[in-house]
Design a protein around this nucleic acid. Structure first.
Lengths: 214, 214
DNA sequence: TGGAAGATACCTCTGCCAGAGGTATCTTGA
DNA sequence: TCAAGATACCTCTGGCAGAGGTATCTTCCA
Protein backbone atom coordinates (compact mmCIF):
# COMPACT_ATOMS: atom_id res chain seq x y z
CA UNK A 1 0.00 0.00 0.00
CA UNK A 2 2.83 2.34 0.76
CA UNK A 3 4.02 2.76 -2.79
CA UNK A 4 0.64 2.89 -4.42
CA UNK A 5 -0.73 6.20 -5.66
CA UNK A 6 -2.58 8.20 -3.04
CA UNK A 7 -6.34 7.92 -3.13
CA UNK A 8 -8.51 11.02 -3.36
CA UNK A 9 -9.51 10.46 0.24
CA UNK A 10 -5.87 10.51 1.30
CA UNK A 11 -5.38 13.72 -0.64
CA UNK A 12 -8.40 15.20 1.05
CA UNK A 13 -6.81 14.44 4.41
CA UNK A 14 -3.67 16.25 3.32
CA UNK A 15 -5.85 19.14 2.23
CA UNK A 16 -7.54 19.44 5.59
CA UNK A 17 -4.17 19.37 7.31
CA UNK A 18 -2.80 22.08 5.04
CA UNK A 19 -4.63 24.77 6.99
CA UNK A 20 -3.44 23.60 10.37
CA UNK A 21 -2.76 20.46 12.33
CA UNK A 22 -5.73 18.39 13.42
CA UNK A 23 -6.65 15.12 15.02
CA UNK A 24 -8.46 12.42 13.10
CA UNK A 25 -11.69 13.39 14.71
CA UNK A 26 -11.29 17.02 13.74
CA UNK A 27 -10.55 16.03 10.16
CA UNK A 28 -13.71 14.02 10.07
CA UNK A 29 -15.75 16.94 11.33
CA UNK A 30 -14.19 19.44 8.95
CA UNK A 31 -14.71 17.03 6.06
CA UNK A 32 -18.34 16.58 6.88
CA UNK A 33 -18.94 20.30 7.17
CA UNK A 34 -17.12 21.50 4.11
CA UNK A 35 -16.94 18.55 1.75
CA UNK A 36 -19.79 16.36 2.94
CA UNK A 37 -21.88 17.01 -0.13
CA UNK A 38 -19.21 16.16 -2.64
CA UNK A 39 -16.84 13.74 -0.93
CA UNK A 40 -17.62 11.64 2.11
CA UNK A 41 -14.86 10.56 4.45
CA UNK A 42 -15.78 7.61 6.63
CA UNK A 43 -14.13 6.42 9.81
CA UNK A 44 -13.23 3.16 8.20
CA UNK A 45 -11.11 5.05 5.69
CA UNK A 46 -9.85 7.90 7.80
CA UNK A 47 -7.78 6.16 10.46
CA UNK A 48 -6.04 3.63 8.24
CA UNK A 49 -5.26 6.42 5.78
CA UNK A 50 -3.73 8.54 8.51
CA UNK A 51 -1.35 5.73 9.39
CA UNK A 52 -0.53 5.13 5.76
CA UNK A 53 0.21 8.81 5.20
CA UNK A 54 2.45 8.72 8.24
CA UNK A 55 4.28 5.66 6.90
CA UNK A 56 4.86 7.52 3.65
CA UNK A 57 6.26 10.50 5.51
CA UNK A 58 3.58 12.88 4.28
CA UNK A 59 2.23 13.69 7.72
CA UNK A 60 3.75 13.50 11.19
CA UNK A 61 2.50 13.58 14.76
CA UNK A 62 2.12 17.09 16.08
CA UNK A 63 3.17 16.49 19.65
CA UNK A 64 2.39 13.41 21.68
CA UNK A 65 -1.13 12.06 22.02
CA UNK A 66 -2.62 14.71 24.23
CA UNK A 67 -5.75 16.31 25.49
CA UNK A 68 -8.96 14.52 26.20
CA UNK A 69 -9.18 10.90 25.11
CA UNK A 70 -5.59 10.80 23.96
CA UNK A 71 -6.27 12.42 20.66
CA UNK A 72 -3.35 12.48 18.30
CA UNK A 73 -2.81 15.61 16.24
CA UNK A 74 -1.18 15.36 12.82
CA UNK A 75 0.53 17.95 10.69
CA UNK A 76 1.68 18.08 7.10
CA UNK A 77 5.34 17.50 6.30
CA UNK A 78 7.03 19.34 3.45
CA UNK A 79 6.72 16.22 1.34
CA UNK A 80 3.04 16.09 2.22
CA UNK A 81 2.49 19.64 1.04
CA UNK A 82 4.27 18.88 -2.21
CA UNK A 83 2.14 15.80 -2.76
CA UNK A 84 -1.00 17.83 -2.17
CA UNK A 85 0.04 20.54 -4.60
CA UNK A 86 1.00 18.04 -7.26
CA UNK A 87 -2.36 16.34 -6.95
CA UNK A 88 -4.23 19.62 -7.20
CA UNK A 89 -2.55 20.34 -10.53
CA UNK A 90 -3.60 17.03 -12.07
CA UNK A 91 -6.88 16.72 -13.95
CA UNK A 92 -9.73 15.36 -11.85
CA UNK A 93 -11.89 12.29 -12.40
CA UNK A 94 -15.39 13.05 -13.64
CA UNK A 95 -18.12 13.47 -11.04
CA UNK A 96 -20.15 10.42 -10.14
CA UNK A 97 -23.68 10.49 -8.84
CA UNK A 98 -25.04 7.54 -6.87
CA UNK A 99 -28.72 8.02 -6.39
CA UNK A 100 -30.93 5.14 -5.40
CA UNK A 101 -34.02 7.31 -5.50
CA UNK A 102 -33.59 8.13 -9.16
CA UNK A 103 -32.82 4.50 -9.87
CA UNK A 104 -36.18 3.55 -8.39
CA UNK A 105 -37.89 6.28 -10.33
CA UNK A 106 -36.46 4.80 -13.49
CA UNK A 107 -38.54 1.65 -13.00
CA UNK A 108 -41.53 3.24 -11.42
CA UNK A 109 -43.88 2.35 -14.26
CA UNK A 110 -43.70 -1.15 -12.84
CA UNK A 111 -45.74 -0.11 -9.80
CA UNK A 112 -47.67 2.99 -10.78
CA UNK A 113 -47.82 6.69 -10.25
CA UNK A 114 -48.77 6.67 -6.59
CA UNK A 115 -45.42 5.16 -5.76
CA UNK A 116 -43.70 7.72 -7.95
CA UNK A 117 -45.41 10.54 -6.13
CA UNK A 118 -44.43 9.08 -2.80
CA UNK A 119 -40.81 8.70 -3.80
CA UNK A 120 -40.72 12.25 -5.07
CA UNK A 121 -42.26 13.69 -1.96
CA UNK A 122 -39.88 11.90 0.37
CA UNK A 123 -37.03 12.99 -1.82
CA UNK A 124 -38.14 16.58 -1.77
CA UNK A 125 -38.52 16.59 1.99
CA UNK A 126 -35.01 15.24 2.46
CA UNK A 127 -33.52 17.77 0.09
CA UNK A 128 -35.31 20.67 1.74
CA UNK A 129 -34.10 19.59 5.17
CA UNK A 130 -30.56 19.38 3.87
CA UNK A 131 -30.77 22.80 2.31
CA UNK A 132 -32.00 24.25 5.57
CA UNK A 133 -29.07 22.78 7.42
CA UNK A 134 -26.61 24.12 4.92
CA UNK A 135 -28.15 27.56 4.98
CA UNK A 136 -28.19 27.65 8.76
CA UNK A 137 -24.42 27.53 8.88
CA UNK A 138 -22.53 30.77 8.76
CA UNK A 139 -20.82 31.03 5.38
CA UNK A 140 -18.22 33.45 6.60
CA UNK A 141 -17.01 31.11 9.28
CA UNK A 142 -15.45 29.04 6.53
CA UNK A 143 -13.19 31.82 5.62
CA UNK A 144 -10.00 33.11 7.05
CA UNK A 145 -7.85 32.13 4.12
CA UNK A 146 -5.82 34.48 1.99
CA UNK A 147 -8.76 36.15 0.38
CA UNK A 148 -11.30 36.27 3.13
CA UNK A 149 -12.30 39.74 2.12
CA UNK A 150 -13.61 38.63 -1.25
CA UNK A 151 -15.12 35.31 -0.27
CA UNK A 152 -13.55 33.53 -3.20
CA UNK A 153 -11.91 30.68 -1.38
CA UNK A 154 -12.38 27.06 -2.30
CA UNK A 155 -14.87 26.35 0.47
CA UNK A 156 -17.04 29.20 -0.71
CA UNK A 157 -17.10 27.85 -4.24
CA UNK A 158 -17.92 24.35 -3.09
CA UNK A 159 -20.63 25.56 -0.77
CA UNK A 160 -22.19 27.48 -3.64
CA UNK A 161 -22.18 24.36 -5.76
CA UNK A 162 -23.85 22.40 -3.01
CA UNK A 163 -26.63 24.94 -2.70
CA UNK A 164 -27.12 25.14 -6.46
CA UNK A 165 -27.34 21.37 -6.59
CA UNK A 166 -29.94 21.28 -3.84
CA UNK A 167 -31.99 24.06 -5.41
CA UNK A 168 -31.94 22.35 -8.78
CA UNK A 169 -32.90 19.00 -7.27
CA UNK A 170 -35.80 20.49 -5.35
CA UNK A 171 -37.03 22.34 -8.41
CA UNK A 172 -36.87 19.13 -10.40
CA UNK A 173 -38.95 17.33 -7.77
CA UNK A 174 -41.55 20.08 -8.00
CA UNK A 175 -41.72 19.84 -11.76
CA UNK A 176 -42.02 16.08 -11.70
CA UNK A 177 -44.71 16.21 -9.01
CA UNK A 178 -46.60 18.84 -10.95
CA UNK A 179 -46.60 16.63 -14.03
CA UNK A 180 -47.73 13.58 -12.12
CA UNK A 181 -50.37 15.55 -10.28
CA UNK A 182 -51.69 16.98 -13.50
CA UNK A 183 -51.93 13.57 -15.01
CA UNK A 184 -53.90 12.25 -12.12
CA UNK A 185 -56.30 14.93 -11.07
CA UNK A 186 -55.83 17.59 -13.67
CA UNK A 187 -53.84 20.57 -12.60
CA UNK A 188 -53.28 20.92 -8.90
CA UNK A 189 -49.58 21.50 -8.66
CA UNK A 190 -49.30 24.67 -6.66
CA UNK A 191 -48.17 22.97 -3.49
CA UNK A 192 -45.21 24.60 -1.84
CA UNK A 193 -42.45 23.97 0.52
CA UNK A 194 -44.53 23.82 3.67
CA UNK A 195 -46.80 21.10 2.44
CA UNK A 196 -44.09 18.84 1.33
CA UNK A 197 -42.09 19.23 4.47
CA UNK A 198 -45.04 18.10 6.44
CA UNK A 199 -45.03 14.84 4.55
CA UNK A 200 -42.21 12.94 6.01
CA UNK A 201 -38.68 12.96 7.02
CA UNK A 202 -37.54 10.40 4.57
CA UNK A 203 -33.83 10.73 4.59
CA UNK A 204 -33.58 9.59 8.15
CA UNK A 205 -30.37 7.70 7.63
CA UNK A 206 -27.14 9.58 7.82
CA UNK A 207 -25.18 9.91 4.69
CA UNK A 208 -22.81 12.22 2.96
CA UNK A 209 -25.69 14.09 1.50
CA UNK A 210 -27.88 14.13 4.53
CA UNK A 211 -27.71 16.34 7.52
CA UNK A 212 -25.75 13.56 9.11
CA UNK A 213 -26.77 13.18 12.71
CA UNK A 214 -23.93 10.77 13.15
CA UNK B 1 -24.71 -14.06 -0.09
CA UNK B 2 -27.88 -15.76 -1.11
CA UNK B 3 -29.91 -14.73 1.92
CA UNK B 4 -28.58 -11.21 2.23
CA UNK B 5 -30.75 -8.29 1.12
CA UNK B 6 -30.50 -7.42 -2.54
CA UNK B 7 -28.20 -4.56 -3.38
CA UNK B 8 -29.46 -1.59 -5.37
CA UNK B 9 -27.43 -2.84 -8.32
CA UNK B 10 -29.19 -6.21 -8.17
CA UNK B 11 -32.52 -4.40 -8.05
CA UNK B 12 -31.49 -2.36 -11.05
CA UNK B 13 -30.85 -5.57 -12.96
CA UNK B 14 -34.32 -6.79 -12.08
CA UNK B 15 -35.64 -3.46 -13.26
CA UNK B 16 -33.97 -3.72 -16.63
CA UNK B 17 -35.33 -7.22 -17.07
CA UNK B 18 -38.85 -6.10 -16.21
CA UNK B 19 -39.35 -4.60 -19.67
CA UNK B 20 -38.13 -7.66 -21.51
CA UNK B 21 -35.53 -10.39 -21.30
CA UNK B 22 -31.95 -9.41 -21.99
CA UNK B 23 -28.43 -10.73 -21.93
CA UNK B 24 -25.87 -9.39 -19.51
CA UNK B 25 -24.35 -7.31 -22.22
CA UNK B 26 -27.69 -5.78 -23.14
CA UNK B 27 -28.35 -4.95 -19.52
CA UNK B 28 -25.05 -3.18 -19.33
CA UNK B 29 -25.83 -1.13 -22.40
CA UNK B 30 -29.32 -0.24 -21.25
CA UNK B 31 -27.98 0.74 -17.84
CA UNK B 32 -25.37 2.97 -19.37
CA UNK B 33 -27.88 4.69 -21.60
CA UNK B 34 -30.67 5.30 -19.17
CA UNK B 35 -29.13 5.23 -15.70
CA UNK B 36 -25.48 5.97 -16.39
CA UNK B 37 -25.60 9.38 -14.81
CA UNK B 38 -27.24 8.31 -11.59
CA UNK B 39 -26.23 4.69 -11.09
CA UNK B 40 -23.29 2.98 -12.75
CA UNK B 41 -23.30 -0.76 -13.33
CA UNK B 42 -19.88 -2.23 -13.90
CA UNK B 43 -18.95 -5.57 -15.42
CA UNK B 44 -17.40 -6.68 -12.20
CA UNK B 45 -20.76 -6.36 -10.50
CA UNK B 46 -23.08 -7.33 -13.30
CA UNK B 47 -22.12 -10.92 -14.01
CA UNK B 48 -21.76 -12.12 -10.41
CA UNK B 49 -25.06 -10.45 -9.58
CA UNK B 50 -26.80 -12.22 -12.46
CA UNK B 51 -25.68 -15.56 -11.09
CA UNK B 52 -26.70 -14.60 -7.60
CA UNK B 53 -30.14 -13.52 -8.78
CA UNK B 54 -30.46 -16.85 -10.57
CA UNK B 55 -29.47 -18.73 -7.42
CA UNK B 56 -32.17 -16.87 -5.54
CA UNK B 57 -34.75 -17.78 -8.16
CA UNK B 58 -35.47 -14.19 -9.12
CA UNK B 59 -34.34 -14.55 -12.71
CA UNK B 60 -34.06 -17.56 -15.02
CA UNK B 61 -32.39 -18.33 -18.32
CA UNK B 62 -34.53 -17.38 -21.29
CA UNK B 63 -33.63 -20.22 -23.61
CA UNK B 64 -30.23 -21.79 -23.92
CA UNK B 65 -27.09 -19.73 -24.48
CA UNK B 66 -27.65 -18.67 -28.06
CA UNK B 67 -26.85 -16.22 -30.75
CA UNK B 68 -23.47 -14.75 -31.39
CA UNK B 69 -20.82 -15.39 -28.74
CA UNK B 70 -23.07 -17.68 -26.74
CA UNK B 71 -24.88 -14.88 -25.05
CA UNK B 72 -27.25 -15.95 -22.31
CA UNK B 73 -30.57 -14.17 -22.06
CA UNK B 74 -32.30 -13.82 -18.70
CA UNK B 75 -35.88 -13.12 -17.79
CA UNK B 76 -37.63 -12.18 -14.58
CA UNK B 77 -39.46 -14.85 -12.60
CA UNK B 78 -42.66 -14.05 -10.73
CA UNK B 79 -40.65 -13.90 -7.51
CA UNK B 80 -38.25 -11.51 -9.20
CA UNK B 81 -41.04 -9.18 -10.19
CA UNK B 82 -42.40 -9.23 -6.66
CA UNK B 83 -38.97 -8.42 -5.25
CA UNK B 84 -38.63 -5.51 -7.65
CA UNK B 85 -42.02 -4.10 -6.76
CA UNK B 86 -41.37 -4.43 -3.03
CA UNK B 87 -38.07 -2.61 -3.38
CA UNK B 88 -39.67 0.21 -5.37
CA UNK B 89 -42.12 0.85 -2.55
CA UNK B 90 -39.43 1.23 0.09
CA UNK B 91 -37.87 4.63 0.82
CA UNK B 92 -34.61 5.26 -0.98
CA UNK B 93 -31.18 6.01 0.41
CA UNK B 94 -30.11 9.64 0.07
CA UNK B 95 -28.19 10.62 -3.06
CA UNK B 96 -24.42 10.62 -2.85
CA UNK B 97 -22.14 12.76 -4.96
CA UNK B 98 -18.54 11.74 -5.48
CA UNK B 99 -16.73 14.56 -7.17
CA UNK B 100 -12.97 14.69 -7.15
CA UNK B 101 -12.95 17.97 -9.07
CA UNK B 102 -14.88 19.79 -6.37
CA UNK B 103 -12.69 18.20 -3.73
CA UNK B 104 -9.66 19.71 -5.43
CA UNK B 105 -11.38 23.04 -5.75
CA UNK B 106 -11.94 22.99 -2.01
CA UNK B 107 -8.18 23.18 -1.42
CA UNK B 108 -7.32 25.31 -4.37
CA UNK B 109 -6.12 28.25 -2.30
CA UNK B 110 -3.11 26.09 -1.63
CA UNK B 111 -1.88 26.49 -5.20
CA UNK B 112 -3.48 29.63 -6.54
CA UNK B 113 -6.14 30.82 -8.90
CA UNK B 114 -4.54 29.72 -12.13
CA UNK B 115 -4.98 26.14 -11.07
CA UNK B 116 -8.58 26.85 -10.10
CA UNK B 117 -9.26 28.27 -13.53
CA UNK B 118 -7.70 25.26 -15.17
CA UNK B 119 -9.74 22.83 -13.10
CA UNK B 120 -12.92 24.71 -13.89
CA UNK B 121 -12.26 24.82 -17.60
CA UNK B 122 -11.54 21.11 -17.84
CA UNK B 123 -14.59 20.43 -15.78
CA UNK B 124 -16.76 22.54 -18.00
CA UNK B 125 -15.49 20.85 -21.14
CA UNK B 126 -16.20 17.41 -19.72
CA UNK B 127 -19.70 18.38 -18.68
CA UNK B 128 -20.50 19.88 -22.06
CA UNK B 129 -19.32 16.72 -23.81
CA UNK B 130 -21.47 14.64 -21.51
CA UNK B 131 -24.48 16.80 -22.17
CA UNK B 132 -23.99 16.40 -25.91
CA UNK B 133 -23.91 12.65 -25.59
CA UNK B 134 -27.07 12.61 -23.49
CA UNK B 135 -28.85 14.87 -25.95
CA UNK B 136 -27.85 12.67 -28.85
CA UNK B 137 -29.72 9.69 -27.42
CA UNK B 138 -33.27 9.16 -28.54
CA UNK B 139 -35.43 9.84 -25.52
CA UNK B 140 -38.09 7.28 -26.34
CA UNK B 141 -35.80 4.43 -27.24
CA UNK B 142 -35.76 2.85 -23.83
CA UNK B 143 -39.45 2.89 -23.19
CA UNK B 144 -41.97 0.17 -23.24
CA UNK B 145 -43.67 0.84 -19.96
CA UNK B 146 -47.37 1.41 -19.43
CA UNK B 147 -47.53 5.01 -20.57
CA UNK B 148 -45.13 5.25 -23.43
CA UNK B 149 -47.58 7.44 -25.27
CA UNK B 150 -47.40 10.31 -22.82
CA UNK B 151 -43.67 10.40 -22.28
CA UNK B 152 -44.05 10.37 -18.51
CA UNK B 153 -42.23 7.16 -17.85
CA UNK B 154 -39.40 6.76 -15.40
CA UNK B 155 -36.67 6.97 -18.05
CA UNK B 156 -38.03 10.32 -19.19
CA UNK B 157 -37.98 11.69 -15.64
CA UNK B 158 -34.48 10.46 -15.00
CA UNK B 159 -33.21 11.79 -18.26
CA UNK B 160 -34.66 15.18 -17.42
CA UNK B 161 -32.88 15.14 -14.09
CA UNK B 162 -29.60 14.29 -15.75
CA UNK B 163 -29.92 17.17 -18.15
CA UNK B 164 -30.90 19.58 -15.39
CA UNK B 165 -27.91 18.45 -13.38
CA UNK B 166 -25.56 18.99 -16.29
CA UNK B 167 -27.03 22.40 -17.12
CA UNK B 168 -26.73 23.51 -13.53
CA UNK B 169 -23.15 22.27 -13.27
CA UNK B 170 -22.11 24.02 -16.44
CA UNK B 171 -23.76 27.24 -15.33
CA UNK B 172 -21.95 27.00 -12.00
CA UNK B 173 -18.61 26.61 -13.80
CA UNK B 174 -19.36 29.72 -15.82
CA UNK B 175 -20.16 31.73 -12.73
CA UNK B 176 -17.08 30.57 -10.92
CA UNK B 177 -14.89 31.31 -13.93
CA UNK B 178 -16.42 34.75 -14.30
CA UNK B 179 -15.63 35.52 -10.68
CA UNK B 180 -12.08 34.28 -10.94
CA UNK B 181 -11.52 36.16 -14.16
CA UNK B 182 -12.79 39.33 -12.65
CA UNK B 183 -10.49 38.97 -9.69
CA UNK B 184 -7.49 38.41 -11.83
CA UNK B 185 -7.82 41.49 -13.94
CA UNK B 186 -8.82 43.60 -10.98
CA UNK B 187 -6.11 42.56 -8.55
CA UNK B 188 -2.72 40.97 -8.25
CA UNK B 189 -3.62 37.38 -7.68
CA UNK B 190 -1.15 35.78 -9.99
CA UNK B 191 1.65 37.21 -7.96
CA UNK B 192 0.28 36.01 -4.65
CA UNK B 193 -0.28 32.46 -5.63
CA UNK B 194 2.85 31.27 -4.00
CA UNK B 195 2.23 33.08 -0.76
CA UNK B 196 -0.91 31.23 0.02
CA UNK B 197 0.77 28.32 1.65
CA UNK B 198 2.65 30.48 4.07
CA UNK B 199 -0.33 32.05 5.68
CA UNK B 200 -2.40 30.47 8.37
CA UNK B 201 -5.66 29.16 7.23
CA UNK B 202 -8.63 28.79 9.42
CA UNK B 203 -11.71 27.66 7.71
CA UNK B 204 -11.79 24.93 10.10
CA UNK B 205 -13.35 26.24 13.09
CA UNK B 206 -17.02 26.28 12.51
CA UNK B 207 -18.17 26.27 9.18
CA UNK B 208 -20.16 24.14 7.13
CA UNK B 209 -21.61 22.29 4.45
CA UNK B 210 -23.52 19.99 6.60
CA UNK B 211 -25.04 20.70 9.92
CA UNK B 212 -25.08 18.10 12.55
CA UNK B 213 -28.32 18.64 14.37
CA UNK B 214 -27.65 15.88 16.81
C1' DT C 1 -18.88 10.87 46.47
C1' DG C 2 -20.16 7.93 43.25
C1' DG C 3 -22.14 6.04 39.53
C1' DA C 4 -25.11 6.15 35.45
C1' DA C 5 -25.47 8.17 30.95
C1' DG C 6 -23.78 10.17 27.22
C1' DA C 7 -20.25 12.20 24.24
C1' DT C 8 -15.66 11.58 22.34
C1' DA C 9 -11.92 9.25 19.80
C1' DC C 10 -10.26 5.58 17.63
C1' DC C 11 -10.43 0.95 15.64
C1' DT C 12 -11.89 -3.42 12.98
C1' DC C 13 -14.60 -6.19 10.00
C1' DT C 14 -17.70 -7.06 6.27
C1' DG C 15 -19.26 -6.59 1.87
C1' DC C 16 -20.54 -3.31 -2.23
C1' DC C 17 -18.48 -1.77 -5.99
C1' DA C 18 -15.36 0.15 -10.08
C1' DG C 19 -11.82 -0.69 -13.00
C1' DA C 20 -8.05 -3.20 -14.89
C1' DG C 21 -7.01 -6.98 -17.19
C1' DG C 22 -7.98 -11.50 -19.09
C1' DT C 23 -10.11 -15.26 -22.39
C1' DA C 24 -12.86 -16.90 -25.99
C1' DT C 25 -15.83 -16.05 -29.78
C1' DC C 26 -17.43 -13.85 -33.84
C1' DT C 27 -17.05 -10.50 -37.85
C1' DT C 28 -14.64 -7.96 -41.25
C1' DG C 29 -11.74 -7.36 -44.92
C1' DA C 30 -7.47 -7.54 -47.47
C1' DT D 1 -6.85 -17.46 -44.81
C1' DC D 2 -5.32 -14.89 -41.40
C1' DA D 3 -4.92 -10.64 -38.82
C1' DA D 4 -7.44 -7.12 -36.46
C1' DG D 5 -11.06 -5.59 -34.08
C1' DA D 6 -15.52 -5.94 -31.80
C1' DT D 7 -18.34 -8.68 -28.68
C1' DA D 8 -19.51 -11.20 -24.36
C1' DC D 9 -18.28 -12.80 -20.27
C1' DC D 10 -15.20 -13.43 -16.31
C1' DT D 11 -11.78 -12.67 -12.28
C1' DC D 12 -8.97 -10.17 -9.15
C1' DT D 13 -7.61 -6.19 -6.53
C1' DG D 14 -8.28 -2.57 -3.68
C1' DG D 15 -11.16 1.89 -2.46
C1' DC D 16 -14.70 2.74 0.36
C1' DA D 17 -19.10 3.06 3.61
C1' DG D 18 -21.31 1.51 7.48
C1' DA D 19 -22.04 -1.35 11.39
C1' DG D 20 -20.34 -2.43 15.50
C1' DG D 21 -16.92 -2.41 19.26
C1' DT D 22 -13.75 -0.51 23.04
C1' DA D 23 -11.91 2.80 26.02
C1' DT D 24 -11.86 7.33 27.81
C1' DC D 25 -13.67 11.55 29.46
C1' DT D 26 -17.54 14.70 31.03
C1' DT D 27 -21.89 15.74 33.05
C1' DC D 28 -25.21 15.50 36.26
C1' DC D 29 -27.98 14.00 39.84
C1' DA D 30 -28.46 11.66 44.23
Amino acid sequence: MVYRALTPTAQAILGFLSFRSRSGYEIRQAAQRTAGLVWGVSDGQLYPQLHDLHARGLIEPDGAPEGPKSRQRWRLTDAGREALQAWLREPAAPPVLRDEGLLKLLFVDEVGLDVARDLLERRRAGLVALRESVLSLVPGAERGGPDAETGLTGPTLVRAFGLDFLEMSIAWCDQALAQLGRRRRGGNDGADAGDHQASQRAYAGSGPLSAAPS
